[in-house]
Design a protein around this nucleic acid. Structure first.
Lengths: 295, 295
DNA sequence: GGCCGGTTATGCTCGGCACGCATGACCGTG
DNA sequence: CACGGTCATGCGTGCCGAGCATAACCGGCC
């Protein structure tokens, strides 16, 4: 047995109607059919989703956890199949953190002015390709180089960002002179953002590389910041973070002896949205013009 | 014929493999079967998705537009069915704009500190219930009161926000004394955010209400801001917008003679994530403590 | 307490349809 | 022009999902 959409729709309708019979009427089916569909789904998952008897029906804890996920999935499917979304659907720009830095606002402004019929959605996904690999976005801003499978993307270099160190404001390193070095950080616990992937232990030369045990792994920028603010670790990132993620308990310092991090615009080999070229062109235009904040 | 998951998987695999035969091998099916599935999907949609002949296969423009949407949908389905996501899955907090205002950062900080195993995702959806109605989030921050169907949500009042007017920095209204009134705005074109729904023409008393023709409808805060910055309209919002969406070309002024807007925390009658109560409690704690920015 | 209305589960039959097999049609290549 | 590789089609079959009928069950109410 493989799970099909009918099983998911059956479960969701039953959960919402609170009755197999009512759900069957809604779906224009008979009650036995729906009973069986639900049983099949439960058998496949190996859990009972609905606690039901003749005069009582409610979701089990597993069912309650399952329901919103099914709802989200079916919404996604229906939107994919809805032909009305084919035209004028939003252009989705993915990023893992900081987006286009200080260029973000100018981009949104110019885009909405020029393409009022095509909304530009800025979506943050804590994932290496910022949702591109999952088909959740049409274009993505990625910091650092992409691992392998580079052949399946078209990338465009936008600019380089210098690296910065992020240290707790109340720690000893915050009192040190302006510029920090990798050696300064090597003795500390390092907070690594595992999904952004810009900073890894490879950044340190082998002779002064901190041991893996002296790291804290986090999944997104908020967590990363909170970890440093709490004094549990220090971190390395790029200047965009310093500019857009100012934090009263975190101090940013230039990080000497490191190479700049490229900021790339990544898209599939075949564009998934007709407006992608226009977006790429607009970003190119903006970068060629005056820096943001001067208008 | 109804579209089922097998049709979507067939299309996506064919699109990725670039061949019906290869896709059939991947899916452990025969080529004729897959050919037919694809044909059925195309027939249902009424559009040809794949341009194929014996020695040539590529997606049509419609197919190229369809692929990422199918990919996103199937990702959502697979995530819903993946039992490993049952534990430790992220708690999704939806908002339409401004989230928890200045409380946002403290909330993230405290949450990650207390619940390191349960990531808190802040998701923005340009929709009245910020994704709650679609099952995309577990809790939502909503400004203003919710229309009808109030019975299906549990709401908790958090605080009230005073209204502000947003006017172009280079316009005449920006030179006026500090506080503006509804009468001041009535003569201008009004930018209305149709999905946030906090500000409608109902805000103005009938005798000075601007005509519907004198409005510009936008779908999100970015667009709303850009419209005002461009001098095309003026707008009304709440103080959270003024605090978090500062814009060099937009001036915010208190708006006299209007009622405050409630900020509500909304969740389904039965929680869709076990950590929801903890989040609600934490927010309550934060609000009872000192205001943000003092620590 | 027993009847009744309303609910879900199960046996059964049947029709449709999705599958695989075989084959045809097509086309670029050598 | 034969060949290998591809996609489309015709056909037969077996499975599965549908409805119908009915059993089992339970709460409420007279």
């Amino acid at each position: 047995m493989t799970v099909e959409l009918r099983h998911l729709r059956a479960f969701l309708t039953i959960a919402r109607e609170g009755s197999v019979t009512h759900a069957a009427a809604v779906l224009r089916l008979t009650q036995p059919t729906l009973s069986r569909r639900l049983a099949q789904l439960e058998e496949h998952l190996g859990v009972r989703l609905v606690d039901r008897s003749t005069h009582h029906l409610e979701l089990t804890p597993e069912g309650r956890a399952f329901e919103p996920r099914v709802a989200a999935a079916l919404t996604a499917v229906d939107e994919a199949l809805d032909p009305s979304h084919a035209e004028g659907r939003p252009l989705r720009l993915g990023h893992a953190w900081s987006a286009l830095g200080e260029w973000t606002t100018p981009l949104l402004r110019h885009w909405h002015r020029r393409h009022p019929r095509t909304p530009l959605e800025l979506l943050r996904y804590d994932e290496r390709t910022a949702g591109l690999a999952q088909g959740r976005v049409d274009v993505a801003v990625v910091r650092g180089t992409l691992p392998e499978e580079a052949g399946q993307w078209r990338t465009r270099w936008l600019w380089d960002e210098p690296r910065v160190a992020a240290v707790p404001a109340d720690g000893a390193l915050a009192d040190r002179p302006e510029t920090l070095t990798l050696t300064d950080l090597a003795g500390e616990t390092i907070a690594l953002n595992t999904v952004a992937g810009v900073t890894t232990l490879e950044l340190w030369p082998p002779d002064i590389r901190p041991p893996a045990a002296a790291t804290v792994l986090v999944r997104n920028t908020d967590d990363w910041l909170a970890t440093i603010a709490a004094g549990r670790a220090v971190g390395a990132s790029t200047s965009a973070t310093a500019a857009l993620h100012a934090h009263p308990e975190v101090v940013y310092r230039p990080l000497a002896g490191t190479e700049d991090v490229p900021v790339l615009l990544v898209r599939p080999l075949t564009d998934s949205h007709p407006a992608v070229p226009a977006l790429v062109a607009l970003i190119g235009e903006l970068l060629a013009g005056p820096p943001p904040g001067t208008g």
